[in-house]
Each structure stands twice: as structure tokens, then as C-alpha cells.
Computed example of a mutant assay.
Amino acid sequence: MGDTTREPDFAGGFAAAAASFAALDDPLWDPISTAAVLRAHPRFDELVLDACSGDGASAIPTAELVGVGGVVDAVDFAEPLVDLARERAGERMPQLRFHVADVTSWEPTGYDLVQCVLGVFFFDDMDAGTRHLIERAHPGGRVAITVWAEGALEPLPELLVSALPEDAASELGDLTSPAIDTAGTPGSLAQWLTGLGLVQVRAEAVQRHLDLTPELAWALVLGTGLRLVLGELDEEAVSGVRERYVAALEERGVTSIDITTLIAVGRRRG
């Protein structure tokens, strides 16, 4: 969400939001992850790093594709999300290994495929963090990065900020857009990743819209990075934000939103 005037607690925020995050599996995370995995094309017996793995939406289907001869390291900093992923996976895939860790300091290398679905945005330094991911692949190995497209989720961030108490809104800085400023189109995403060490990068937009109900519109606040906008508001204040936010959606006639993602796949420079 860009530079901020405060340091958002991403790990704490997503730990608190684990149940709300999982509630979006069917409408949001699973279809986005399916599209990402399809393009990353995990293969039988491959060694894969699934970075910012959340509750397993991309790691689990990847583990199914690499089979018992492969390995998927699923890494996320939010332990409650990792616990949810373990529950989803059960005991049926010994090739799927879960780790509670900061992937920007993950040391193992030599992966055939490194993939990250909607995670690089949360790195303190997106360039350094994404470069670190690229360097986890072996030379010539594949790297697949999924980000939000320019305009995704609009106008939810704007309407949410407008629904905040005045003193809370003034502290937000630029914590409003989920898209990466320098990678909001397929071309800019490919250019950015090429500059970080990938070659033969192909990027495309996967267009999708999501029909909204008031309940789903609020679930998108609680279960995505938009939750960080609520900061340290107490329960009464959050209730007021929800009421004003839903009213603003109705007033603007917002019945669907763009959830287009950009997916880029390239190879680590040898």
C-alpha cells in the first residue's frame, strides 16, 4: 500500500485476521491462486518455495502437482495462517512442509520454482525482498510473482478511509492502494522483475470481477490488507466505520469490484 507515516504490523494484523482471511478462500484467494499456479506450472519432483503462503491456497495445489517425489516449502510469518494451511492439507501430502518465518530472510536456495501470490507488497523493502526471493531459485530456475493490477479493489480503499474517524484518517499517509506503484501493468511488472534479476519474463493480466454484498464488502476489509487501515480502533469505532463504509458503497452504487491480478513468470539470470 505504498509508503506510510507509521509502521504497520503486518504479522500481527494477519494473525488477528486469520479467520477473516480464510473466509475469503472461495471468492478471492483460491481462484487467484489457481490462476497463479497454472502459469507457474509446478512439475513432478520439483523443489518449490511458496513464499507468503497464507492459508495454503497456492501451496496445497502445488504440492499435489510436484507429487511425493517433490518438496514444497510453504513460508509465512503469520502462525495462525500457517496453522490453517496445515489443517487444510491434513496428513495426505508429506511433500508439503510448513514454516513460520520471514521469507525475506529465508536462507535455503536451489529451488526449481519460487512463487509468491500477492505477498511482495508486504515486504518492508519490496525491491530487496523480491530480489531475495529470486535468488532462492537456482540459476535458470523459474520465479512466478502475482500482484494486484492497477485499479484493483477500487473504490474500497477510498471509501474505507472516508469512513474512518477524522483523527484516524489523518494518520494513514498513503496506506490506501493495494497495487505496487511501479508494477501496476503487465509491462511495468515485467520491467521491474527484469531489473531485479529475471530474464525471459512474461507477464499478463488475469481479469476478474467480484460481485459484492454488504457482508462480502466488509469481509474484504477484515480479510485483506485493508484491515491495516483500521489500525488500533476499538470495537465501537470499528462498528461505526462499518456502518459508514457500507452506506457509502450503497450511495455510490458499488455492486462489484475489479480483482484483476498480474502474473509474471521468468527465470533467474544465470
Rank of each mutant, 00 (worst) to 15 (best):
M1K: 05
M1L: 09
G2E: 07
R6K: 12
E7A: 14
F10T: 13
F21K: 00
D26E: 08
P27R: 02
W29C: 02
W29V: 03
P31W: 00
V37K: 08
H41I: 12
F44Y: 04
D45M: 10
V48H: 09
V48S: 08
G54T: 04
D55C: 04
G56C: 03
G56N: 06
A57N: 07
L65K: 12
V66H: 02
V68T: 08
V71S: 06
D76C: 08
F77P: 11
R88H: 12
A89V: 10
E91I: 07
E91F: 08
Q95N: 12
Q95D: 01
L96Q: 07
R97H: 13
D102T: 09
V103F: 07
D112H: 11
D127S: 10
G129I: 06
I134V: 11
E135I: 00
H138L: 10
P139S: 13
P139G: 14
G141I: 02
G141L: 03
G141N: 05
G141V: 03
T146W: 07
E150M: 11
E158L: 10
L160V: 11
V161E: 07
S162E: 15
A163G: 09
L164D: 06
L164E: 04
P165Q: 05
D167S: 12
A168D: 11
G173M: 13
S177H: 14
D181K: 12
P186C: 13
W192M: 10
L193G: 03
G195A: 05
L196T: 10
G197N: 13
V199P: 10
V201L: 09
R208A: 10
R208P: 01
A217I: 03
A217W: 01
W218G: 01
G225M: 01
R227K: 12
R227H: 12
V229T: 15
D234P: 07
V238W: 02
S239T: 11
G240E: 15
V241W: 06
R242E: 15
R244H: 15
A248I: 14
A248D: 13
A248H: 12
R252D: 13
S256D: 11
R267H: 15
R267E: 15
